[in-house]
């Protein structure tokens, strides 16, 4: 119940033209909330030059989140990818897989790339994640691996870090 209210809140604070009907449609969708958080993470993150003209969200094995991103009332450039070469024009990577071997493969592909990597499972966060979304009865929170973001020359906003449940 608390989580549902949190989802409603999220929907109401996001975007500029959400109507009550649209909010109701999003209400039961946890993925929408995660999509919103993903969008906000990108807003609080600063990439090294040159500046990005448009932000691209790449989703790995997480079709529900891709759909949720596409349903947000703002225009978001999001696509699903399944291999390393597609990472070339990605800024934010949402990893849905949790298989260790696959993650190791992605780790190889991601070497040296300046991407913001977000996941909602512990294994992916342990191997290559910078931010992990945590779901609890009270709602959604997140933790941050600051060393990884710094190693990829990304700067997370202090407000974001202040709200993180844990910063490693």
């Amino acid at each position: 119940m608390v989580r549902l209210r949190a989802i409603c809140l999220c929907a109401s604070v996001l975007g500029t033209a959400l109507t009550p009907v649209q909010a109701t449609e999003f209400a039961a969708d946890e993925f929408s909330l995660k999509a919103t958080f993903l969008y906000r993470f990108a807003q609080y993150t600063q990439w090294p030059p040159p500046p990005r003209s448009a932000m691209r969200f790449c989703i790995v094995q997480y079709p529900q989140l891709l759909q949720a991103l596409q349903r947000l009332p703002i225009q978001i450039d999001a696509k699903a990818i399944d291999a390393g070469p597609a990472l070339a024009d990605c800024d934010v990577l949402m990893v849905g897989l949790s298989e260790r071997r696959a993650l190791q493969q992605w780790q190889t592909w991601l070497a040296g790339r300046q991407l913001l990597i977000v996941t909602d499972n512990a294994e992916a966060y342990r191997q290559l994640g910078m931010i992990q979304l945590l779901t609890s009865p009270d709602g959604i929170s997140f933790q941050v691996n600051l060393r990884r973001t710094q190693s990829r020359q990304l700067n997370l906003g202090s407000q974001l870090l202040k709200l993180a449940q844990q910063v490693d």
Binding site: V13, F37, R40, Y44, S141, Q159, L160, L163
Partner: peptide, 14 residues
Amino acid sequence: LNLAASLVFLDKAA
């Protein structure tokens, strides 16, 4: 300004 992040991430406690 200080409240923006809390509101964006729905962190009522913060």
